[in-house]
Measured scan of single mutants.
Amino acid sequence: HTCEKCSTSIANQAVRIQEGRYRHPGCYTCADCGLNLKMRGHFWVGDELYCEKHAR
């Protein structure tokens, strides 16, 4: 898989955010504040991922 955020190959663990879309665990972050979304879930606003606070 290729990380959709940093565009590099994912060798080990990948986070599947949608069918066919993956990120490194470290790239699974809010587009606004950079908070890691692991164990928090994500919210779509347009084509970007946000934490609950910044999705509003």
Rank of each mutant, 00 (worst) to 15 (best):
P25K: 11
C6G: 04
F43M: 07
Y28E: 02
A55I: 07
G26V: 13
L49D: 04
C33G: 01
H1A: 06
E48D: 10
F43E: 10
V15S: 07
L37P: 03
A31R: 12
Y22S: 05
R16N: 14
C3F: 03
H54Q: 01
E52F: 10
D47T: 11
E19N: 03
A55S: 14
L37F: 06
C27P: 04
C33F: 00
N36D: 06
G26Y: 14
C51M: 00
I10Q: 06
N12T: 14
C30M: 01
G46V: 07
E48W: 03
S7T: 12
H42V: 10
C3I: 03
R16P: 15
I10R: 03
R23V: 10
E4P: 02
R21V: 13
W44E: 14
Y50V: 13
N12R: 01
E19P: 07
E4V: 08
W44C: 12
C33E: 00
R40H: 15
S9Q: 10
E19F: 01
C30I: 00
E4T: 11
C27Y: 00
C33T: 01
A14H: 06
V15Q: 09
R23Y: 05
V45P: 04
C3Q: 01
H42M: 08
L49C: 09
C33V: 00
Y50C: 06
Y22L: 05
A55W: 13
K53P: 10
H1L: 14
E52I: 03
C6Q: 07
C6F: 02
Y50L: 11
P25V: 08
C6N: 03
L35T: 14
K5Q: 14
E48Q: 05
L35M: 13
T8N: 15
C33N: 01
R16E: 12
F43S: 10
G41A: 08
S7W: 02
H24T: 05
C30W: 00
D32C: 07
V15H: 09
N12P: 02
L35I: 12
H24Q: 08
R16F: 15
C6R: 06
G34Q: 11
G26D: 15
D47V: 07
A11T: 11
Y50G: 03
C27V: 02
R40D: 12
Q18H: 03
Y22T: 03
G20N: 12
V45L: 10
Y50K: 12
G20H: 09
A55G: 10
S9C: 04
P25C: 02
G20E: 07
D47Q: 10
Q13F: 10
L35N: 13
E52M: 08
D47E: 09
P25E: 15
T29Q: 11
C6I: 08
I17W: 02
A11E: 14
A14Q: 05
T29Y: 08
E19W: 02
T8M: 09
D47G: 09
S9W: 00
C30Q: 01
Q13I: 01
C27N: 01
W44K: 07
V45Y: 13
K5E: 12
T29E: 03
I10C: 10
E4L: 03
S7Y: 02
V15N: 03
Y28A: 10
C51N: 00
D32M: 11
G46P: 05
W44T: 07
E19S: 07
T2P: 02
G34T: 08
K38D: 15
H54A: 00
A31K: 14
E48K: 11
T2C: 05
D47W: 09
E48N: 14
I17S: 04
G46Q: 07
H54T: 01
H42C: 11
V45R: 13
A55H: 02
G20D: 05
T29H: 11
R56E: 15
P25H: 08
N12G: 04
M39K: 13
C30N: 01
A55L: 05
C27L: 02
K38W: 03
H42K: 09
M39P: 15
Y28M: 09
C27D: 02
H42F: 04
C27M: 02
